[in-house]
Computed example of a mutant assay.
Amino acid sequence: MTQKRRNKRNISGWIVLDKPFDVTSTQAVGKLKFLFEAKKAGHAGTLDPLATGILPIALGEATKTVPYIQDGEKIYRFDLVWGSATETDDAEGAVIETSDRRPTEDELRNALPQFTGVITQIPPAYSAIKIKGERAYDLARAGEKVEVPPREVEIEAFELISHSPERSSFEVTCQKGTYVRALARDLARVLGTCGHVGALRRTRVGPFAEEDAVTVDALEAVSRDDRDAMLLPVSAGIADLPEVNVDTRQSATIRLGNPVLLTGANAPIAMDEAAAICAGELVAIGYVEKGQFKPSRVILPG
């Protein structure tokens, strides 16, 4: 007997998942897509399998706002294990170098300013970056020598939380594209030793923080209606965009992909980017030109 296929739903919104250890971001998306019976789902920023913490997952129309979350500020807490470098720059890989040198707390604090502001880093060979059309980690696992080009990233803050001769804890606030594993590797090198990330947790992505997060266990423990109630609105993904209010008639016009003239004493004349809102619901993302809101990404009603 064949198993009856589940009907997929047109359900939209955000779930801020507290991703568990040893689960890939793709696996996490698949799990939530199954739980919500959603037709479409995606995540906003890959989190390493050995990392835990904030993985924003978009369902349905929320996937159209994923780029705004990916471009947002991120905060990580991580442990740097001193004295051993690994091929993956974290605890998953084989040890490739060791050192007896251990930095002092003063040496650490003096080195951190070198890693704040706009810096250049070479992402790990075991990363999702594409090299000639192939993922770097696929090439590395196949035994090929991987040369990942350097890139500029922005580190807004890099703070020492605790220190011991064998392990130190840090919090880093950074922008898109930063590899914490590379940051740990390079900090150890500057201090004349080697090291790797022993634990990593992401505590913030854009507007989403730990207080917004739910676990897979919590989602599995409730009914479908209660699970649906945990969804954040699609508009949660564009919390930092300025808003323009439109009425029901204008909303219908915008959802056909057409511009509308904004009226009222406070109506803007020009805006590089804005969100059109009708009765608290996101209608579209677009821009304002000569007093008209012009949609570039329409959000269908849920």
Rank of each mutant, 00 (worst) to 15 (best):
M1D: 10
R5M: 10
N7C: 11
N7Q: 15
K8C: 10
V16W: 02
V29W: 00
F36G: 04
F36L: 09
H43P: 04
G45V: 09
L47Q: 07
A51F: 02
T52Q: 09
G53I: 04
I54Q: 01
A62D: 02
T63P: 01
T65F: 08
V66I: 15
G72V: 07
E73M: 13
I75G: 08
R77V: 09
D79A: 15
V81M: 11
T86L: 05
I96L: 02
E105V: 12
N110M: 12
L112I: 13
Q114F: 11
K132V: 11
G133T: 06
G133R: 09
Y137I: 02
R141Y: 05
A142H: 10
A142S: 12
V148D: 00
E152S: 08
E152G: 03
E156Y: 11
E156C: 10
E156N: 11
A157P: 07
F158A: 09
H163D: 09
E171H: 09
Y179W: 12
A182L: 09
D186F: 09
R189E: 11
L191A: 12
C194Y: 03
R201N: 00
R202E: 03
G206W: 00
A209S: 10
T215N: 03
V216T: 14
A221L: 14
V222C: 10
S223G: 07
R224L: 10
D225S: 11
D225M: 08
V244F: 02
V244A: 01
V244E: 04
L256V: 14
G257S: 01
M271W: 04
E273L: 07
A276N: 00
C278K: 09
Y287L: 10
Y287R: 13
V288C: 04
V288M: 05
V288D: 05
V288N: 02
K290S: 14
V298R: 08
V298P: 03
I299F: 07
I299H: 05
